[in-house]
């Protein structure tokens, strides 16, 4: 089984549009995994019917029981996250600031502090519109366990792929280079880096490639909106040669991207004749 991750560093370069179109041409071979868990949009195109949904618990939050609290302030003095609020001589936990380290619980002699495991999201296994399975998730507001939820989505996708004898898992990743991206790269065989020819896109491409290279993951690159700035497209291509990154496709600026999204379709459904050569070429190179 081969796990392919679509990432970009920079947001808004077309990751989800390309992932959705790839799932259309490879529907018989792939399980899709939406790992952009804090802004998951793939379901808006794939319109999945959830077959199985599961609460996802991860991490803890402290709770102070005011009946037992002696107001000694030990919790307040050890907390490094400014998550304990002093109100007169009472102490409260600031929910969004608590990281669940439990240090306060260890130093509370009155045993007034409990740690409660947090439901931070929902994970779904679904039948997607094109006939493939989609594993996707919703992260709760402000949750700081996106990396763990990504790992859970990928674990489920692996299981579903085995059960259904699919050879590929295609992962729609999140922007950036932090914990959800690192988590989506771990165990992947190939990374598709989607970029655009802007100075920002170029900077972000270099950083996301460097991260992928640390994991020794082979990379290919799609240059979207390639004709917006031919000069920078040429600079990107130089970098691809220098870093040994495969050029998968150059796609010209095209408002079919927002047009398809607005209709809830993938590019292939909007205009198969135009988009099939691009999408098929990418799929043949990465499979």
């Amino acid at each position: 089984m081969k796990e392919i991750v679509v990432i970009s560093g920079k947001g808004g370069t077309g990751k989800t549009s390309l992932s959705a179109s790839l799932s259309y041409v490879a529907a018989n071979e792939v399980v899709m995994a939406d790992c952009d868990v804090d802004a998951a949009d793939l379901h808006l195109i794939l319109k999945p019917e959830n077959q199985y949904s599961e609460d996802f618990y991860s991490g803890f939050k402290a709770e102070i029981n005011p009946e037992y609290c002696q107001s000694c302030g030990a919790c307040f003095s050890v907390c490094r996250f400014e998550a304990i609020l002093r109100k007169d001589d009472r102490y409260e936990v600031k929910y969004l600031d608590c990281e669940g380290c439990g240090y306060c619980q260890h130093v509370c002699l009155a045993e007034a502090i409990n740690l409660r495991e947090q439901k931070v999201g929902l994970c779904h296994i679904a039948d997607a519109r094109f006939g493939c399975k989609l594993v996707h998730a919703e992260l709760g507001i402000g949750a700081d366990n996106s990396g763990k939820l990504v790992a859970k989505v990928k674990r489920d996708a692996n299981r579903v792929a085995k059960e259904n004898s699919k050879d590929y898992i295609l992962v729609d990743g999140s922007p950036g280079i932090g914990c959800p991206v690192i988590s989506s790269l771990s165990g992947a065989a190939y990374a598709v880096l989607v970029t655009e020819p802007s100075l920002s896109g170029l900077e972000d491409l270099k950083r996301v490639w460097e991260l992928s290279a640390r994991f020794r993951i082979a990379c290919g690159c799609v240059i979207n909106k390639a004709d917006v700035n031919p000069e920078i497209t040429a600079m990107i291509k130089d970098i691809l040669v220098e870093k040994d990154i495969e050029l998968l496709s150059e796609i010209p600026y095209d408002e079919d991207f927002p047009r398809a999204i607005t209709k809830g379709l993938c590019l292939m459904e909007l205009d198969q004749a135009k988009w099939e050569p691009y999408i098929k070429q990418i799929w043949e190179k990465i499979r």
């Binding site: 804090d38 802004a39 992260l139 402000g142 700081d144 999140s174 950036g176 959800p180």
Partner: peptide, 23 residues
């Protein structure tokens, strides 16, 4: 940063006003 997870919360939580950019 984009998103709605912890890094976005930390970047916005001391602000007096938040502009959300969308398309």
């Amino acid at each position: 940063p984009p998103g709605t997870s912890c890094s976005m919360i930390h970047a916005t939580k001391t602000a007096d006003y938040v502009i959300l950019v969308t398309e």
